[in-house]
Design a protein around this nucleic acid. Structure first.
Lengths: 117, 117
DNA sequence: GAAAAGTACTTGGCCATACATAGTACCTTT
DNA sequence: AAAGGTACTATGTATGGCCAAGTACTTTTC
Protein backbone atom coordinates (compact mmCIF):
# COMPACT_ATOMS: atom_id res chain seq x y z
CA UNK A 1 0.00 0.00 0.00
CA UNK A 2 1.97 2.94 -1.29
CA UNK A 3 0.77 6.44 -1.91
CA UNK A 4 1.00 6.20 -5.69
CA UNK A 5 -1.53 3.43 -5.64
CA UNK A 6 -3.91 5.33 -3.41
CA UNK A 7 -3.65 8.28 -5.76
CA UNK A 8 -4.67 6.00 -8.61
CA UNK A 9 -7.61 4.72 -6.59
CA UNK A 10 -8.72 8.25 -5.74
CA UNK A 11 -8.98 9.03 -9.41
CA UNK A 12 -11.18 6.11 -10.26
CA UNK A 13 -14.48 7.30 -11.57
CA UNK A 14 -13.39 10.91 -11.50
CA UNK A 15 -11.57 10.47 -14.77
CA UNK A 16 -14.81 9.37 -16.38
CA UNK A 17 -16.48 12.45 -14.94
CA UNK A 18 -13.81 14.77 -16.32
CA UNK A 19 -13.90 13.24 -19.75
CA UNK A 20 -17.66 13.53 -19.99
CA UNK A 21 -17.28 17.18 -19.06
CA UNK A 22 -14.69 17.81 -21.72
CA UNK A 23 -16.81 16.12 -24.35
CA UNK A 24 -19.86 18.09 -23.23
CA UNK A 25 -18.14 21.29 -24.28
CA UNK A 26 -17.78 20.36 -27.90
CA UNK A 27 -16.41 17.81 -30.29
CA UNK A 28 -13.02 16.48 -29.34
CA UNK A 29 -10.88 13.48 -30.07
CA UNK A 30 -8.69 11.52 -27.71
CA UNK A 31 -5.53 13.58 -28.07
CA UNK A 32 -7.44 16.77 -27.29
CA UNK A 33 -8.67 15.21 -24.08
CA UNK A 34 -5.25 13.95 -23.12
CA UNK A 35 -3.83 17.39 -23.62
CA UNK A 36 -6.46 19.09 -21.51
CA UNK A 37 -6.27 16.53 -18.71
CA UNK A 38 -2.51 16.79 -18.66
CA UNK A 39 -2.62 20.57 -18.50
CA UNK A 40 -4.94 20.24 -15.49
CA UNK A 41 -2.35 17.95 -13.88
CA UNK A 42 -4.44 14.85 -14.30
CA UNK A 43 -2.02 12.37 -15.81
CA UNK A 44 -3.58 9.93 -18.20
CA UNK A 45 -2.17 7.62 -20.79
CA UNK A 46 -3.59 6.19 -23.98
CA UNK A 47 -4.13 2.77 -22.47
CA UNK A 48 -6.55 4.34 -20.01
CA UNK A 49 -8.48 6.76 -22.14
CA UNK A 50 -9.23 4.62 -25.17
CA UNK A 51 -10.87 1.76 -23.30
CA UNK A 52 -12.79 4.33 -21.28
CA UNK A 53 -14.12 6.00 -24.42
CA UNK A 54 -15.14 2.60 -25.73
CA UNK A 55 -17.06 1.89 -22.53
CA UNK A 56 -18.80 5.25 -22.72
CA UNK A 57 -19.85 4.62 -26.29
CA UNK A 58 -21.10 1.11 -25.59
CA UNK A 59 -23.19 2.54 -22.76
CA UNK A 60 -24.69 5.09 -25.12
CA UNK A 61 -23.37 8.09 -23.21
CA UNK A 62 -21.23 9.36 -26.05
CA UNK A 63 -21.22 9.02 -29.79
CA UNK A 64 -18.56 9.73 -32.35
CA UNK A 65 -17.97 10.35 -35.99
CA UNK A 66 -14.89 9.83 -38.07
CA UNK A 67 -13.26 13.00 -39.30
CA UNK A 68 -10.37 12.94 -41.70
CA UNK A 69 -7.19 14.64 -40.68
CA UNK A 70 -4.72 16.39 -42.92
CA UNK A 71 -1.83 15.12 -40.87
CA UNK A 72 -2.41 11.45 -40.27
CA UNK A 73 -5.16 8.89 -40.01
CA UNK A 74 -8.80 9.87 -39.40
CA UNK A 75 -9.90 10.73 -35.89
CA UNK A 76 -12.89 9.84 -33.78
CA UNK A 77 -14.59 13.03 -32.72
CA UNK A 78 -16.81 12.48 -29.70
CA UNK A 79 -20.03 14.15 -28.66
CA UNK A 80 -22.33 13.64 -25.69
CA UNK A 81 -25.65 11.93 -26.28
CA UNK A 82 -28.82 12.97 -24.47
CA UNK A 83 -28.33 10.04 -22.13
CA UNK A 84 -24.80 11.24 -21.56
CA UNK A 85 -26.03 14.71 -20.63
CA UNK A 86 -28.39 13.28 -18.06
CA UNK A 87 -25.68 11.04 -16.73
CA UNK A 88 -23.29 13.94 -16.44
CA UNK A 89 -25.82 15.98 -14.50
CA UNK A 90 -26.12 13.13 -12.05
CA UNK A 91 -22.37 12.95 -11.71
CA UNK A 92 -22.18 16.65 -11.02
CA UNK A 93 -24.40 16.11 -8.01
CA UNK A 94 -22.39 13.08 -6.93
CA UNK A 95 -19.15 15.01 -7.19
CA UNK A 96 -20.46 17.95 -5.19
CA UNK A 97 -21.72 15.65 -2.48
CA UNK A 98 -18.51 13.69 -2.39
CA UNK A 99 -16.40 16.80 -2.02
CA UNK A 100 -18.75 18.24 0.55
CA UNK A 101 -18.82 15.05 2.63
CA UNK A 102 -15.08 14.63 2.49
CA UNK A 103 -14.38 18.24 3.41
CA UNK A 104 -16.74 17.77 6.34
CA UNK A 105 -14.73 14.81 7.59
CA UNK A 106 -11.29 16.29 7.08
CA UNK A 107 -12.09 19.71 8.45
CA UNK A 108 -12.81 18.34 11.90
CA UNK A 109 -9.71 18.47 14.03
CA UNK A 110 -8.87 16.97 17.37
CA UNK A 111 -10.12 19.93 19.35
CA UNK A 112 -13.50 20.27 17.72
CA UNK A 113 -14.92 16.81 17.78
CA UNK A 114 -18.51 16.44 16.83
CA UNK A 115 -20.76 16.27 19.85
CA UNK A 116 -23.62 13.80 19.90
CA UNK A 117 -26.66 16.03 19.55
CA UNK B 1 -22.55 1.42 -16.77
CA UNK B 2 -25.04 2.88 -14.35
CA UNK B 3 -24.59 5.87 -12.11
CA UNK B 4 -24.51 3.84 -8.90
CA UNK B 5 -21.43 2.08 -10.11
CA UNK B 6 -19.68 5.28 -11.06
CA UNK B 7 -20.47 6.65 -7.63
CA UNK B 8 -18.83 3.60 -6.11
CA UNK B 9 -15.76 4.13 -8.29
CA UNK B 10 -15.55 7.78 -7.36
CA UNK B 11 -15.27 6.84 -3.72
CA UNK B 12 -12.37 4.48 -4.18
CA UNK B 13 -9.38 5.68 -2.24
CA UNK B 14 -11.30 8.55 -0.73
CA UNK B 15 -12.80 6.25 1.84
CA UNK B 16 -9.31 5.29 2.95
CA UNK B 17 -8.45 8.96 3.20
CA UNK B 18 -11.50 9.73 5.34
CA UNK B 19 -10.88 6.82 7.67
CA UNK B 20 -7.26 7.80 8.24
CA UNK B 21 -8.51 11.27 9.08
CA UNK B 22 -11.03 10.00 11.58
CA UNK B 23 -8.44 7.80 13.25
CA UNK B 24 -5.97 10.69 13.36
CA UNK B 25 -8.32 12.56 15.68
CA UNK B 26 -8.27 9.98 18.42
CA UNK B 27 -8.90 6.37 19.27
CA UNK B 28 -11.95 4.93 17.59
CA UNK B 29 -13.32 1.54 16.71
CA UNK B 30 -15.12 0.47 13.58
CA UNK B 31 -18.65 1.36 14.66
CA UNK B 32 -17.54 4.87 15.59
CA UNK B 33 -16.16 5.32 12.10
CA UNK B 34 -19.27 3.91 10.47
CA UNK B 35 -21.40 6.31 12.42
CA UNK B 36 -19.33 9.34 11.51
CA UNK B 37 -19.10 8.42 7.85
CA UNK B 38 -22.82 7.81 7.69
CA UNK B 39 -23.57 11.15 9.31
CA UNK B 40 -21.41 12.79 6.62
CA UNK B 41 -23.52 10.98 3.99
CA UNK B 42 -20.75 8.60 3.04
CA UNK B 43 -22.45 5.23 3.08
CA UNK B 44 -20.24 2.38 4.16
CA UNK B 45 -20.93 -1.16 5.22
CA UNK B 46 -19.04 -3.53 7.47
CA UNK B 47 -17.77 -5.63 4.59
CA UNK B 48 -15.96 -2.57 3.30
CA UNK B 49 -14.54 -1.06 6.44
CA UNK B 50 -13.16 -4.14 8.16
CA UNK B 51 -11.02 -5.34 5.24
CA UNK B 52 -9.85 -1.75 4.79
CA UNK B 53 -8.76 -1.51 8.42
CA UNK B 54 -6.92 -4.80 8.04
CA UNK B 55 -5.08 -3.47 5.00
CA UNK B 56 -4.13 -0.31 6.83
CA UNK B 57 -2.77 -2.28 9.75
CA UNK B 58 -0.80 -4.67 7.55
CA UNK B 59 0.73 -1.65 5.87
CA UNK B 60 1.77 -0.24 9.23
CA UNK B 61 -0.32 2.92 8.86
CA UNK B 62 -2.52 2.21 11.85
CA UNK B 63 -2.25 0.18 14.99
CA UNK B 64 -4.88 -1.03 17.42
CA UNK B 65 -5.39 -2.36 20.87
CA UNK B 66 -8.16 -4.47 22.28
CA UNK B 67 -10.38 -2.70 24.77
CA UNK B 68 -13.05 -4.55 26.69
CA UNK B 69 -16.59 -3.29 26.38
CA UNK B 70 -19.25 -3.38 29.04
CA UNK B 71 -21.90 -4.12 26.47
CA UNK B 72 -20.56 -6.86 24.25
CA UNK B 73 -17.34 -8.33 22.96
CA UNK B 74 -14.05 -6.42 23.12
CA UNK B 75 -13.34 -3.78 20.50
CA UNK B 76 -10.35 -2.88 18.40
CA UNK B 77 -9.45 0.72 19.06
CA UNK B 78 -7.34 2.17 16.26
CA UNK B 79 -4.63 4.79 16.31
CA UNK B 80 -2.44 6.28 13.61
CA UNK B 81 1.21 5.29 13.50
CA UNK B 82 3.96 7.74 12.57
CA UNK B 83 4.03 6.21 9.11
CA UNK B 84 0.29 6.71 8.98
CA UNK B 85 0.64 10.38 9.82
CA UNK B 86 3.13 10.87 7.03
CA UNK B 87 0.92 8.97 4.64
CA UNK B 88 -2.07 11.07 5.60
CA UNK B 89 -0.18 14.28 4.97
CA UNK B 90 0.63 13.02 1.49
CA UNK B 91 -3.00 12.18 0.90
CA UNK B 92 -4.05 15.65 1.99
CA UNK B 93 -1.95 17.06 -0.81
CA UNK B 94 -3.27 14.50 -3.27
CA UNK B 95 -6.84 15.30 -2.33
CA UNK B 96 -6.35 19.05 -2.70
CA UNK B 97 -4.75 18.60 -6.08
CA UNK B 98 -7.44 16.24 -7.25
CA UNK B 99 -10.22 18.61 -6.24
CA UNK B 100 -8.39 21.55 -7.74
CA UNK B 101 -7.73 19.77 -11.03
CA UNK B 102 -11.27 18.52 -11.31
CA UNK B 103 -12.80 21.87 -10.52
CA UNK B 104 -10.58 23.34 -13.19
CA UNK B 105 -11.95 20.94 -15.78
CA UNK B 106 -15.58 21.19 -14.84
CA UNK B 107 -15.66 24.94 -14.41
CA UNK B 108 -14.83 25.53 -18.05
CA UNK B 109 -17.97 25.93 -20.08
CA UNK B 110 -18.64 26.03 -23.77
CA UNK B 111 -18.14 29.76 -24.06
CA UNK B 112 -14.84 30.00 -22.27
CA UNK B 113 -12.69 27.41 -23.89
CA UNK B 114 -9.06 27.40 -23.00
CA UNK B 115 -6.91 29.28 -25.43
CA UNK B 116 -3.56 27.83 -26.38
CA UNK B 117 -1.18 30.19 -24.61
C1' DG C 1 -26.89 -23.40 33.41
C1' DA C 2 -28.40 -23.81 28.48
C1' DA C 3 -30.64 -21.42 24.56
C1' DA C 4 -31.46 -17.06 22.24
C1' DA C 5 -30.22 -12.52 20.90
C1' DG C 6 -26.93 -8.89 20.15
C1' DT C 7 -22.39 -6.86 19.11
C1' DA C 8 -17.83 -6.98 16.91
C1' DC C 9 -14.97 -8.81 13.81
C1' DT C 10 -13.46 -12.20 9.77
C1' DT C 11 -13.32 -14.41 5.30
C1' DG C 12 -14.06 -15.69 0.32
C1' DG C 13 -15.72 -14.47 -3.96
C1' DC C 14 -17.40 -11.08 -7.50
C1' DC C 15 -17.13 -6.93 -10.34
C1' DA C 16 -15.39 -2.61 -12.39
C1' DT C 17 -11.65 0.61 -13.34
C1' DA C 18 -6.75 2.19 -14.29
C1' DC C 19 -2.69 0.83 -16.26
C1' DA C 20 1.14 -1.51 -18.95
C1' DT C 21 2.19 -3.51 -23.06
C1' DA C 22 1.88 -4.98 -27.54
C1' DG C 23 -0.32 -4.69 -31.82
C1' DT C 24 -3.12 -2.87 -36.00
C1' DA C 25 -4.35 0.57 -39.48
C1' DC C 26 -3.79 4.66 -41.96
C1' DC C 27 -1.23 8.72 -43.67
C1' DT C 28 2.86 11.42 -44.90
C1' DT C 29 7.58 11.79 -46.03
C1' DT C 30 11.69 10.33 -48.21
C1' DA D 1 8.42 1.14 -51.82
C1' DA D 2 10.35 1.85 -47.11
C1' DA D 3 10.37 4.49 -42.81
C1' DG D 4 8.26 7.12 -39.47
C1' DG D 5 4.40 9.22 -37.13
C1' DT D 6 -0.42 9.43 -35.58
C1' DA D 7 -4.67 7.31 -33.99
C1' DC D 8 -6.96 3.58 -32.39
C1' DT D 9 -7.45 -1.54 -30.47
C1' DA D 10 -6.82 -5.63 -27.60
C1' DT D 11 -5.14 -8.43 -23.72
C1' DG D 12 -3.75 -9.22 -19.16
C1' DT D 13 -2.78 -7.62 -14.20
C1' DA D 14 -3.69 -5.34 -9.77
C1' DT D 15 -6.61 -3.08 -6.54
C1' DG D 16 -10.59 -1.64 -3.89
C1' DG D 17 -15.57 -1.71 -2.69
C1' DC D 18 -19.18 -4.72 -1.85
C1' DC D 19 -22.13 -8.88 -0.81
C1' DA D 20 -22.88 -12.77 1.89
C1' DA D 21 -21.93 -16.01 5.06
C1' DG D 22 -19.56 -17.21 9.12
C1' DT D 23 -16.97 -16.95 13.79
C1' DA D 24 -16.42 -15.42 18.54
C1' DC D 25 -17.61 -13.25 22.61
C1' DT D 26 -21.11 -11.20 25.86
C1' DT D 27 -25.55 -10.44 27.81
C1' DT D 28 -30.30 -11.70 28.33
C1' DT D 29 -33.96 -14.97 28.98
C1' DC D 30 -36.04 -19.01 30.60
Amino acid sequence: MNIENTQVQMRKGILEFCILHIISRGEVYASDMLEELTSAKIMVVEGTIYPLLTRLRKSGLVDYKWVESNSGPPRKYFTLTEAGQGFLEGLNITWDELVSSTQKIISINKNSKKKGS
